[in-house]
Nucleic acid binder design. Structure first.
Length: 491
RNA sequence: CGGGGUGUAGCGCAGUCCGGUAGCGCACCUGGUUUGGGACCAGGGGGUCCCAGGUUCGAAUCCUGGUACCCCGACCA
Protein backbone atom coordinates (compact mmCIF):
# COMPACT_ATOMS: atom_id res chain seq x y z
CA UNK A 1 0.00 0.00 0.00
CA UNK A 2 1.18 3.48 -0.82
CA UNK A 3 2.33 5.27 2.28
CA UNK A 4 0.45 8.49 2.64
CA UNK A 5 1.35 9.14 6.24
CA UNK A 6 4.63 9.91 7.91
CA UNK A 7 5.24 7.08 10.36
CA UNK A 8 4.90 7.74 14.08
CA UNK A 9 8.45 6.65 14.61
CA UNK A 10 9.79 9.05 12.02
CA UNK A 11 7.98 12.06 13.41
CA UNK A 12 5.04 11.88 15.75
CA UNK A 13 4.08 15.52 15.18
CA UNK A 14 4.17 15.10 11.41
CA UNK A 15 2.21 11.85 11.64
CA UNK A 16 -0.50 13.61 13.60
CA UNK A 17 -0.65 16.47 11.13
CA UNK A 18 -0.72 14.18 8.10
CA UNK A 19 -3.44 12.10 9.68
CA UNK A 20 -5.75 14.98 10.49
CA UNK A 21 -5.33 16.31 6.97
CA UNK A 22 -5.46 13.05 5.04
CA UNK A 23 -8.33 11.56 7.01
CA UNK A 24 -10.28 14.69 6.12
CA UNK A 25 -10.86 15.77 9.70
CA UNK A 26 -9.67 19.36 9.42
CA UNK A 27 -7.29 21.69 7.68
CA UNK A 28 -5.59 25.00 8.32
CA UNK A 29 -7.53 28.02 7.20
CA UNK A 30 -6.65 31.40 5.79
CA UNK A 31 -6.95 32.73 9.34
CA UNK A 32 -3.86 32.30 11.46
CA UNK A 33 -4.35 29.67 14.14
CA UNK A 34 -7.90 28.88 13.10
CA UNK A 35 -8.88 25.63 11.45
CA UNK A 36 -11.60 24.46 9.15
CA UNK A 37 -13.25 21.36 10.55
CA UNK A 38 -14.24 19.28 7.55
CA UNK A 39 -17.47 17.29 7.28
CA UNK A 40 -15.95 13.97 8.31
CA UNK A 41 -14.24 15.51 11.33
CA UNK A 42 -17.31 17.48 12.23
CA UNK A 43 -19.42 14.31 12.06
CA UNK A 44 -17.27 12.86 14.84
CA UNK A 45 -17.60 16.04 16.87
CA UNK A 46 -21.37 15.93 16.39
CA UNK A 47 -21.46 12.41 17.76
CA UNK A 48 -19.43 13.54 20.74
CA UNK A 49 -21.79 16.44 21.25
CA UNK A 50 -24.87 14.29 21.09
CA UNK A 51 -23.61 11.83 23.66
CA UNK A 52 -22.30 14.48 26.02
CA UNK A 53 -25.44 16.56 25.63
CA UNK A 54 -27.57 13.59 26.62
CA UNK A 55 -25.37 13.02 29.63
CA UNK A 56 -25.70 16.65 30.67
CA UNK A 57 -29.47 16.47 30.35
CA UNK A 58 -29.55 13.27 32.37
CA UNK A 59 -27.69 15.03 35.15
CA UNK A 60 -30.28 17.80 35.19
CA UNK A 61 -28.74 20.45 32.97
CA UNK A 62 -30.30 22.65 30.33
CA UNK A 63 -28.71 24.41 27.39
CA UNK A 64 -28.66 28.18 26.93
CA UNK A 65 -26.65 30.68 24.96
CA UNK A 66 -24.71 33.76 26.02
CA UNK A 67 -23.01 36.44 23.90
CA UNK A 68 -19.74 36.04 22.07
CA UNK A 69 -18.67 39.52 23.19
CA UNK A 70 -17.89 40.45 26.74
CA UNK A 71 -17.55 44.06 27.91
CA UNK A 72 -14.00 44.67 29.01
CA UNK A 73 -15.17 45.93 32.38
CA UNK A 74 -16.93 42.64 33.18
CA UNK A 75 -13.86 40.77 32.35
CA UNK A 76 -11.66 42.59 34.82
CA UNK A 77 -13.88 42.05 37.85
CA UNK A 78 -12.27 38.85 39.03
CA UNK A 79 -8.56 39.44 39.53
CA UNK A 80 -7.18 35.92 39.10
CA UNK A 81 -9.39 35.43 36.05
CA UNK A 82 -7.93 38.50 34.32
CA UNK A 83 -4.39 37.37 35.08
CA UNK A 84 -5.11 34.01 33.52
CA UNK A 85 -6.61 35.19 30.26
CA UNK A 86 -5.48 38.77 29.63
CA UNK A 87 -2.52 37.76 27.46
CA UNK A 88 -4.62 35.86 24.96
CA UNK A 89 -7.71 37.95 24.34
CA UNK A 90 -8.92 39.26 21.02
CA UNK A 91 -10.47 42.71 21.42
CA UNK A 92 -13.20 44.37 19.38
CA UNK A 93 -12.61 48.10 19.18
CA UNK A 94 -14.75 49.30 16.25
CA UNK A 95 -18.10 48.49 14.75
CA UNK A 96 -17.84 49.75 11.20
CA UNK A 97 -15.70 49.74 8.08
CA UNK A 98 -15.63 52.24 5.29
CA UNK A 99 -14.15 52.53 1.80
CA UNK A 100 -10.54 53.51 1.85
CA UNK A 101 -10.47 57.12 0.60
CA UNK A 102 -6.94 56.53 -0.74
CA UNK A 103 -7.96 53.74 -3.05
CA UNK A 104 -8.95 50.13 -3.03
CA UNK A 105 -10.45 48.12 -0.23
CA UNK A 106 -11.90 49.06 3.10
CA UNK A 107 -10.48 50.46 6.31
CA UNK A 108 -11.69 50.56 9.88
CA UNK A 109 -13.78 53.67 10.30
CA UNK A 110 -12.01 55.70 12.99
CA UNK A 111 -15.32 57.43 13.78
CA UNK A 112 -16.85 54.10 14.74
CA UNK A 113 -14.79 53.45 17.82
CA UNK A 114 -16.63 51.67 20.60
CA UNK A 115 -17.11 53.50 23.88
CA UNK A 116 -16.29 50.31 25.69
CA UNK A 117 -14.27 47.65 23.99
CA UNK A 118 -15.49 44.08 23.84
CA UNK A 119 -13.45 41.00 24.53
CA UNK A 120 -14.14 37.99 22.34
CA UNK A 121 -14.92 35.39 25.00
CA UNK A 122 -12.04 33.13 25.99
CA UNK A 123 -14.60 31.58 28.40
CA UNK A 124 -17.92 32.91 29.64
CA UNK A 125 -17.80 33.07 33.42
CA UNK A 126 -18.00 36.84 33.56
CA UNK A 127 -20.91 37.43 31.20
CA UNK A 128 -22.75 34.51 32.74
CA UNK A 129 -22.32 35.64 36.33
CA UNK A 130 -23.32 39.14 35.36
CA UNK A 131 -26.50 37.55 34.01
CA UNK A 132 -27.09 35.12 36.88
CA UNK A 133 -27.11 38.10 39.21
CA UNK A 134 -30.52 38.94 37.75
CA UNK A 135 -31.79 35.38 37.88
CA UNK A 136 -31.10 34.73 41.52
CA UNK A 137 -32.81 36.23 44.55
CA UNK A 138 -33.67 33.32 46.76
CA UNK A 139 -32.58 29.80 47.52
CA UNK A 140 -35.73 28.84 45.60
CA UNK A 141 -33.99 30.01 42.39
CA UNK A 142 -31.15 27.57 42.97
CA UNK A 143 -29.53 25.54 41.70
CA UNK A 144 -29.06 26.88 38.19
CA UNK A 145 -27.70 24.14 35.99
CA UNK A 146 -26.88 25.53 32.57
CA UNK A 147 -24.62 24.48 29.75
CA UNK A 148 -23.76 26.23 26.53
CA UNK A 149 -22.26 24.91 23.32
CA UNK A 150 -20.14 27.67 21.88
CA UNK A 151 -16.97 28.80 20.21
CA UNK A 152 -14.29 30.63 22.17
CA UNK A 153 -11.13 32.46 21.20
CA UNK A 154 -7.76 32.32 22.88
CA UNK A 155 -4.98 34.02 20.99
CA UNK A 156 -2.39 31.29 21.29
CA UNK A 157 1.23 31.80 20.33
CA UNK A 158 1.45 28.46 18.65
CA UNK A 159 -1.39 26.36 17.39
CA UNK A 160 -1.92 22.76 16.35
CA UNK A 161 -4.96 21.31 14.65
CA UNK A 162 -7.55 20.38 17.30
CA UNK A 163 -5.02 20.36 20.16
CA UNK A 164 -4.64 24.09 20.36
CA UNK A 165 -6.33 26.50 17.99
CA UNK A 166 -7.03 30.20 18.35
CA UNK A 167 -10.73 29.56 17.98
CA UNK A 168 -12.21 26.31 19.21
CA UNK A 169 -15.57 24.72 19.85
CA UNK A 170 -16.51 23.50 23.27
CA UNK A 171 -19.22 23.28 25.86
CA UNK A 172 -19.08 25.17 29.10
CA UNK A 173 -21.31 24.31 32.00
CA UNK A 174 -21.98 27.03 34.54
CA UNK A 175 -23.86 26.20 37.68
CA UNK A 176 -24.97 28.13 40.75
CA UNK A 177 -25.67 26.51 44.11
CA UNK A 178 -26.87 27.41 47.57
CA UNK A 179 -24.16 25.53 49.41
CA UNK A 180 -20.50 24.85 49.12
CA UNK A 181 -21.12 21.14 49.43
CA UNK A 182 -23.60 21.06 46.60
CA UNK A 183 -21.21 22.93 44.30
CA UNK A 184 -18.37 20.56 45.13
CA UNK A 185 -20.63 17.61 44.39
CA UNK A 186 -21.55 19.15 41.06
CA UNK A 187 -17.88 19.60 40.21
CA UNK A 188 -17.25 15.95 40.95
CA UNK A 189 -20.35 14.72 39.16
CA UNK A 190 -19.35 16.44 35.96
CA UNK A 191 -15.82 15.16 36.11
CA UNK A 192 -17.28 11.67 36.40
CA UNK A 193 -19.42 12.37 33.35
CA UNK A 194 -16.30 13.35 31.40
CA UNK A 195 -14.40 10.31 32.61
CA UNK A 196 -17.26 8.02 31.63
CA UNK A 197 -17.49 9.63 28.22
CA UNK A 198 -13.75 9.35 27.64
CA UNK A 199 -13.56 5.73 28.67
CA UNK A 200 -16.82 4.30 27.40
CA UNK A 201 -17.27 6.25 24.19
CA UNK A 202 -13.81 7.40 23.21
CA UNK A 203 -12.25 4.17 24.55
CA UNK A 204 -9.63 6.36 26.15
CA UNK A 205 -8.60 5.60 29.72
CA UNK A 206 -8.18 8.69 31.88
CA UNK A 207 -6.77 9.51 35.29
CA UNK A 208 -9.10 11.64 37.38
CA UNK A 209 -7.55 14.01 39.83
CA UNK A 210 -7.03 17.42 41.35
CA UNK A 211 -4.90 20.10 39.76
CA UNK A 212 -2.22 21.70 41.88
CA UNK A 213 -2.56 25.40 42.68
CA UNK A 214 -0.20 26.29 39.82
CA UNK A 215 -2.26 24.46 37.24
CA UNK A 216 -5.68 25.56 38.44
CA UNK A 217 -8.18 27.46 36.31
CA UNK A 218 -7.91 31.23 36.70
CA UNK A 219 -10.44 32.03 39.42
CA UNK A 220 -11.08 28.50 40.69
CA UNK A 221 -10.58 27.17 44.20
CA UNK A 222 -10.23 23.65 42.88
CA UNK A 223 -9.81 22.25 39.40
CA UNK A 224 -10.56 18.63 38.66
CA UNK A 225 -9.18 17.09 35.51
CA UNK A 226 -9.15 13.99 33.38
CA UNK A 227 -5.70 13.25 31.99
CA UNK A 228 -5.08 10.89 29.11
CA UNK A 229 -1.83 9.44 27.85
CA UNK A 230 -1.03 9.77 24.17
CA UNK A 231 0.99 7.23 22.19
CA UNK A 232 4.11 9.39 22.20
CA UNK A 233 4.17 9.32 25.99
CA UNK A 234 2.82 12.82 26.52
CA UNK A 235 -0.20 13.63 28.64
CA UNK A 236 -3.24 15.44 27.32
CA UNK A 237 -5.59 17.29 29.62
CA UNK A 238 -8.90 16.25 28.18
CA UNK A 239 -11.53 17.86 30.35
CA UNK A 240 -11.75 20.02 33.44
CA UNK A 241 -14.35 20.76 36.09
CA UNK A 242 -13.89 23.70 38.39
CA UNK A 243 -15.14 24.49 41.86
CA UNK A 244 -15.25 28.28 41.77
CA UNK A 245 -16.27 28.82 45.37
CA UNK A 246 -17.88 32.23 45.80
CA UNK A 247 -15.27 34.08 43.76
CA UNK A 248 -17.48 35.00 40.82
CA UNK A 249 -20.53 35.53 43.01
CA UNK A 250 -18.54 38.05 44.99
CA UNK A 251 -17.06 39.70 41.91
CA UNK A 252 -20.52 40.10 40.36
CA UNK A 253 -22.41 40.54 43.60
CA UNK A 254 -24.64 37.53 43.20
CA UNK A 255 -26.42 36.92 46.48
CA UNK A 256 -29.46 34.95 47.53
CA UNK A 257 -31.69 34.83 50.58
CA UNK A 258 -31.28 31.49 52.31
CA UNK A 259 -33.99 29.70 54.25
CA UNK A 260 -33.16 31.75 57.33
CA UNK A 261 -33.72 34.92 55.31
CA UNK A 262 -30.06 35.83 55.39
CA UNK A 263 -28.12 36.95 52.31
CA UNK A 264 -25.28 34.78 51.15
CA UNK A 265 -23.10 34.60 48.05
CA UNK A 266 -23.86 31.85 45.58
CA UNK A 267 -21.49 28.90 45.09
CA UNK A 268 -20.35 28.21 41.55
CA UNK A 269 -18.89 25.61 39.24
CA UNK A 270 -17.86 25.53 35.60
CA UNK A 271 -16.76 22.63 33.46
CA UNK A 272 -15.80 22.07 29.86
CA UNK A 273 -14.52 19.85 27.11
CA UNK A 274 -13.51 21.05 23.67
CA UNK A 275 -12.66 19.98 20.16
CA UNK A 276 -9.33 19.11 21.71
CA UNK A 277 -11.02 15.77 22.39
CA UNK A 278 -10.74 15.18 18.66
CA UNK A 279 -6.98 15.37 19.00
CA UNK A 280 -7.10 13.03 21.96
CA UNK A 281 -9.18 10.57 19.97
CA UNK A 282 -6.75 10.61 17.05
CA UNK A 283 -3.67 10.17 19.21
CA UNK A 284 -5.10 7.45 21.43
CA UNK A 285 -5.79 4.75 18.89
CA UNK A 286 -4.57 5.53 15.41
CA UNK A 287 -1.68 3.84 13.64
CA UNK A 288 0.64 4.35 10.68
CA UNK A 289 -2.12 3.29 8.30
CA UNK A 290 -4.46 5.98 9.48
CA UNK A 291 -7.23 6.72 11.89
CA UNK A 292 -8.64 4.10 14.23
CA UNK A 293 -12.04 5.17 15.52
CA UNK A 294 -14.00 3.67 18.38
CA UNK A 295 -17.20 2.22 16.89
CA UNK A 296 -19.35 4.26 19.25
CA UNK A 297 -18.11 7.53 17.75
CA UNK A 298 -17.38 6.48 14.17
CA UNK A 299 -19.60 8.34 11.68
CA UNK A 300 -19.51 5.23 9.52
CA UNK A 301 -19.33 2.02 11.54
CA UNK A 302 -19.46 -0.41 8.67
CA UNK A 303 -18.54 0.11 5.05
CA UNK A 304 -19.46 -2.40 2.38
CA UNK A 305 -17.37 -2.61 -0.78
CA UNK A 306 -18.57 -4.54 -3.82
CA UNK A 307 -16.06 -6.28 -6.04
CA UNK A 308 -17.17 -6.95 -9.58
CA UNK A 309 -16.17 -6.97 -13.19
CA UNK A 310 -19.40 -6.54 -15.06
CA UNK A 311 -22.50 -4.49 -14.47
CA UNK A 312 -24.54 -7.69 -14.06
CA UNK A 313 -22.32 -8.76 -11.22
CA UNK A 314 -22.78 -5.44 -9.50
CA UNK A 315 -26.54 -5.79 -9.84
CA UNK A 316 -26.46 -9.17 -8.15
CA UNK A 317 -24.24 -7.80 -5.38
CA UNK A 318 -26.54 -4.81 -4.96
CA UNK A 319 -29.48 -7.14 -4.35
CA UNK A 320 -27.64 -9.00 -1.61
CA UNK A 321 -26.22 -5.88 -0.01
CA UNK A 322 -29.42 -3.83 -0.06
CA UNK A 323 -31.04 -6.37 2.23
CA UNK A 324 -28.04 -6.46 4.50
CA UNK A 325 -27.95 -2.68 4.78
CA UNK A 326 -31.54 -2.70 5.99
CA UNK A 327 -30.79 -5.40 8.56
CA UNK A 328 -27.71 -3.58 9.83
CA UNK A 329 -29.56 -0.30 10.10
CA UNK A 330 -32.35 -1.96 12.03
CA UNK A 331 -29.72 -2.90 14.61
CA UNK A 332 -28.78 0.77 14.88
CA UNK A 333 -25.54 0.37 12.95
CA UNK A 334 -24.48 3.18 10.64
CA UNK A 335 -23.49 1.63 7.38
CA UNK A 336 -22.27 2.92 4.05
CA UNK A 337 -22.56 0.86 0.92
CA UNK A 338 -19.93 2.26 -1.40
CA UNK A 339 -20.81 1.00 -4.85
CA UNK A 340 -19.41 4.09 -6.49
CA UNK A 341 -18.18 2.87 -9.86
CA UNK A 342 -15.57 5.61 -10.17
CA UNK A 343 -13.33 4.11 -7.47
CA UNK A 344 -11.92 0.65 -7.38
CA UNK A 345 -11.93 -1.77 -4.47
CA UNK A 346 -8.26 -1.37 -3.65
CA UNK A 347 -8.62 2.36 -3.51
CA UNK A 348 -11.66 2.12 -1.28
CA UNK A 349 -9.96 -0.30 1.11
CA UNK A 350 -7.10 2.11 1.61
CA UNK A 351 -9.38 5.10 1.91
CA UNK A 352 -11.64 3.66 4.60
CA UNK A 353 -8.65 2.35 6.47
CA UNK A 354 -7.21 5.85 6.49
CA UNK A 355 -10.52 7.17 7.77
CA UNK A 356 -10.73 4.63 10.54
CA UNK A 357 -13.98 2.90 9.64
CA UNK A 358 -14.11 0.06 12.21
CA UNK A 359 -15.49 -2.73 10.03
CA UNK A 360 -15.27 -3.31 6.31
CA UNK A 361 -17.28 -5.89 4.43
CA UNK A 362 -16.30 -6.92 0.92
CA UNK A 363 -18.56 -8.88 -1.42
CA UNK A 364 -17.42 -10.31 -4.73
CA UNK A 365 -18.45 -13.04 -7.15
CA UNK A 366 -16.77 -15.70 -5.00
CA UNK A 367 -18.87 -14.64 -2.02
CA UNK A 368 -22.07 -14.69 -4.05
CA UNK A 369 -21.29 -18.26 -4.99
CA UNK A 370 -20.41 -19.32 -1.45
CA UNK A 371 -22.91 -17.21 0.45
CA UNK A 372 -20.12 -15.41 2.32
CA UNK A 373 -18.52 -12.04 2.92
CA UNK A 374 -15.06 -10.89 3.76
CA UNK A 375 -15.03 -9.10 7.11
CA UNK A 376 -12.08 -6.88 7.94
CA UNK A 377 -11.56 -5.09 11.24
CA UNK A 378 -9.64 -1.84 11.36
CA UNK A 379 -8.14 -2.14 14.83
CA UNK A 380 -6.27 -5.40 14.18
CA UNK A 381 -6.16 -5.18 10.37
CA UNK A 382 -7.30 -8.81 10.21
CA UNK A 383 -9.72 -10.35 7.75
CA UNK A 384 -11.93 -13.39 7.80
CA UNK A 385 -14.59 -14.96 5.64
CA UNK A 386 -18.01 -15.24 7.26
CA UNK A 387 -21.30 -16.70 6.10
CA UNK A 388 -23.69 -14.02 4.93
CA UNK A 389 -26.46 -15.67 6.89
CA UNK A 390 -26.81 -13.81 10.19
CA UNK A 391 -23.75 -11.69 9.54
CA UNK A 392 -25.44 -8.59 10.97
CA UNK A 393 -25.33 -9.94 14.51
CA UNK A 394 -21.70 -10.95 14.02
CA UNK A 395 -20.95 -7.44 12.90
CA UNK A 396 -22.74 -5.99 15.87
CA UNK A 397 -20.69 -8.20 18.16
CA UNK A 398 -17.55 -7.27 16.30
CA UNK A 399 -18.20 -3.57 16.82
CA UNK A 400 -18.49 -4.19 20.55
CA UNK A 401 -15.29 -6.23 20.48
CA UNK A 402 -13.44 -3.45 18.69
CA UNK A 403 -14.67 -0.85 21.16
CA UNK A 404 -13.42 -3.01 24.03
CA UNK A 405 -10.23 -3.99 22.33
CA UNK A 406 -9.01 -0.50 21.58
CA UNK A 407 -9.84 0.58 25.11
CA UNK A 408 -7.86 -2.34 26.46
CA UNK A 409 -4.99 -1.61 24.13
CA UNK A 410 -4.88 2.00 25.27
CA UNK A 411 -5.13 0.92 28.89
CA UNK A 412 -2.32 -1.61 28.48
CA UNK A 413 -0.20 1.08 26.91
CA UNK A 414 -0.88 3.40 29.79
CA UNK A 415 -0.14 0.71 32.35
CA UNK A 416 3.13 -0.07 30.61
CA UNK A 417 3.99 3.62 30.57
CA UNK A 418 3.11 4.49 34.12
CA UNK A 419 6.19 4.30 36.29
CA UNK A 420 6.69 4.72 40.01
CA UNK A 421 9.93 6.58 40.62
CA UNK A 422 11.49 7.70 43.89
CA UNK A 423 14.78 9.12 42.68
CA UNK A 424 14.93 12.44 40.87
CA UNK A 425 17.86 11.48 38.63
CA UNK A 426 16.08 8.32 37.57
CA UNK A 427 12.95 10.36 36.98
CA UNK A 428 14.84 12.62 34.57
CA UNK A 429 16.41 9.66 32.81
CA UNK A 430 13.17 7.73 32.36
CA UNK A 431 11.31 10.84 31.31
CA UNK A 432 13.63 11.05 28.30
CA UNK A 433 14.05 7.35 27.66
CA UNK A 434 10.55 6.07 28.25
CA UNK A 435 8.13 8.96 28.72
CA UNK A 436 4.61 8.44 29.96
CA UNK A 437 3.09 8.94 33.36
CA UNK A 438 5.19 8.98 36.52
CA UNK A 439 3.91 8.48 40.02
CA UNK A 440 6.21 10.22 42.45
CA UNK A 441 6.30 11.76 45.87
CA UNK A 442 6.22 15.54 46.01
CA UNK A 443 6.48 17.82 48.98
CA UNK A 444 3.36 19.75 48.06
CA UNK A 445 5.02 23.11 47.45
CA UNK A 446 4.62 25.23 44.31
CA UNK A 447 8.37 25.94 44.46
CA UNK A 448 9.35 22.30 44.04
CA UNK A 449 6.75 21.83 41.34
CA UNK A 450 8.12 24.86 39.51
CA UNK A 451 11.67 23.62 39.84
CA UNK A 452 10.80 20.24 38.37
CA UNK A 453 8.99 21.95 35.52
CA UNK A 454 11.97 24.17 34.74
CA UNK A 455 14.47 21.38 34.94
CA UNK A 456 12.56 18.63 33.14
CA UNK A 457 9.58 20.24 31.35
CA UNK A 458 7.40 17.77 33.20
CA UNK A 459 4.45 19.05 35.19
CA UNK A 460 2.15 17.62 37.79
CA UNK A 461 -0.80 16.57 35.71
CA UNK A 462 -2.89 15.89 38.76
CA UNK A 463 -3.13 14.49 42.23
CA UNK A 464 -5.07 11.35 41.38
CA UNK A 465 -8.36 10.91 43.20
CA UNK A 466 -7.70 7.26 43.82
CA UNK A 467 -4.11 7.79 44.98
CA UNK A 468 -3.68 5.62 48.08
CA UNK A 469 -2.14 7.21 51.13
CA UNK A 470 1.49 6.25 51.18
CA UNK A 471 4.24 7.62 53.35
CA UNK A 472 7.20 8.79 51.32
CA UNK A 473 9.73 11.48 50.66
CA UNK A 474 9.66 14.12 47.93
CA UNK A 475 11.97 12.92 45.16
CA UNK A 476 13.55 16.36 44.95
CA UNK A 477 13.67 17.80 48.46
CA UNK A 478 13.31 14.67 50.58
CA UNK A 479 10.54 16.29 52.59
CA UNK A 480 7.65 14.11 53.71
CA UNK A 481 4.79 13.29 51.33
CA UNK A 482 1.65 11.29 52.00
CA UNK A 483 0.74 10.25 48.47
CA UNK A 484 2.14 9.98 44.97
CA UNK A 485 1.18 12.51 42.32
CA UNK A 486 1.08 12.14 38.55
CA UNK A 487 3.87 13.73 36.53
CA UNK A 488 4.26 13.90 32.75
CA UNK A 489 5.30 16.06 29.89
CA UNK A 490 2.15 17.29 28.30
CA UNK A 491 0.53 18.91 25.30
C1' C B 1 7.67 36.48 20.87
C1' G B 2 12.80 33.95 19.70
C1' G B 3 15.17 30.00 16.35
C1' G B 4 14.70 27.17 11.80
C1' G B 5 12.14 26.01 7.22
C1' U B 6 8.87 26.70 3.11
C1' G B 7 5.72 29.70 -0.56
C1' U B 8 6.28 27.31 -8.47
C1' A B 9 -0.84 23.72 -11.78
C1' G B 10 -6.10 21.25 -7.20
C1' C B 11 -2.14 18.36 -4.03
C1' G B 12 3.15 16.88 -3.39
C1' C B 13 7.66 18.58 -5.32
C1' A B 14 12.13 19.67 -8.91
C1' G B 15 14.18 23.91 -11.21
C1' U B 16 16.98 29.04 -7.79
C1' C B 17 23.85 28.08 -6.47
C1' C B 18 25.48 29.34 -12.32
C1' G B 19 19.44 34.68 -15.37
C1' G B 20 17.52 32.83 -21.61
C1' U B 21 10.63 32.82 -21.39
C1' A B 22 8.53 26.53 -16.59
C1' G B 23 8.82 20.83 -15.56
C1' C B 24 7.82 15.88 -12.88
C1' G B 25 4.43 12.65 -9.94
C1' C B 26 -0.58 12.36 -8.23
C1' A B 27 -5.33 14.34 -9.28
C1' C B 28 -8.51 16.11 -13.55
C1' C B 29 -10.77 15.36 -18.97
C1' U B 30 -11.41 11.74 -23.50
C1' G B 31 -11.08 6.69 -25.38
C1' G B 32 -9.94 1.64 -24.52
C1' U B 33 -8.51 -2.50 -21.48
C1' U B 34 -9.32 -3.44 -16.19
C1' U B 35 -11.71 -4.29 -10.96
C1' G B 36 -10.53 -9.81 -4.17
C1' G B 37 -5.35 -4.10 -1.22
C1' G B 38 -4.53 2.91 -3.71
C1' A B 39 -4.98 -0.46 -12.11
C1' C B 40 -2.70 0.18 -17.13
C1' C B 41 -2.04 2.26 -22.11
C1' A B 42 -2.78 6.34 -25.44
C1' G B 43 -4.18 11.31 -25.99
C1' G B 44 -5.53 16.09 -23.60
C1' G B 45 -6.45 20.55 -20.40
C1' G B 46 -4.62 23.46 -16.58
C1' G B 47 0.57 28.47 -14.10
C1' U B 48 -0.23 36.73 -12.14
C1' C B 49 6.41 30.93 -10.27
C1' C B 50 3.45 34.57 -2.45
C1' C B 51 3.37 40.28 -2.98
C1' A B 52 5.85 45.06 -4.09
C1' G B 53 10.00 47.55 -5.77
C1' G B 54 14.98 47.32 -7.94
C1' U B 55 19.22 45.37 -11.24
C1' U B 56 19.21 43.54 -16.45
C1' C B 57 18.24 43.32 -23.49
C1' G B 58 15.91 39.43 -20.51
C1' A B 59 14.20 37.47 -13.55
C1' A B 60 10.87 31.58 -10.74
C1' U B 61 16.33 32.36 -10.52
C1' C B 62 20.17 38.13 -8.40
C1' C B 63 19.20 42.53 -4.68
C1' U B 64 15.82 45.25 -1.08
C1' G B 65 11.41 45.38 1.61
C1' G B 66 6.93 43.04 2.90
C1' U B 67 3.61 38.89 3.70
C1' A B 68 1.66 33.96 4.66
C1' C B 69 2.07 29.18 6.45
C1' C B 70 4.68 24.98 8.83
C1' C B 71 8.20 22.93 12.51
C1' C B 72 11.08 23.54 17.27
C1' G B 73 11.02 26.51 21.92
C1' A B 74 8.76 30.04 25.80
C1' C B 75 2.97 30.63 27.19
C1' C B 76 -1.69 27.98 27.52
C1' A B 77 -7.30 23.80 27.21
Amino acid sequence: MAKVLTSREESYAQWYNDLVLKADLAENSAVRGCMVIKPYGYAIWEKMQRVLDDMFKETGHQNAYFPLFIPKSFFSKEAAHVDGFAKECAVVTHYRLKNDPDGKGVIVDPDAKLEEEYIVRPTSETIIWNTYKNWIQSYRDLPILVNQWANVVRWEMRTRLFLRTAEFLWQEGHTAHATRQEAIEETETMLKVYAKFAEEWMAMPVVQGYKTANERFAGALETLTIEALMQDGKALQSGTSHFLGQNFAKAFDVTFANQDGKLDHVWATSWGVSTRLMGALVMSHSDDNGLVLPPKLAPIQVVIVPIYKKAEELERINEVVDGLVVRLKSLGISVKYDNDDKRKPGWKFAEYELKGVPVRLAVGPRDLENGTMEVARRDTLTKEIMPLEGIETKVQQLLNDIQENIYKKALDFRTAHTTKVDDYEEFKRLLDEKGGFFLCHWDGTPETEERIKNETKATIRCIPMDAPEEEGQCMVTGKPSDRRVLFARSY
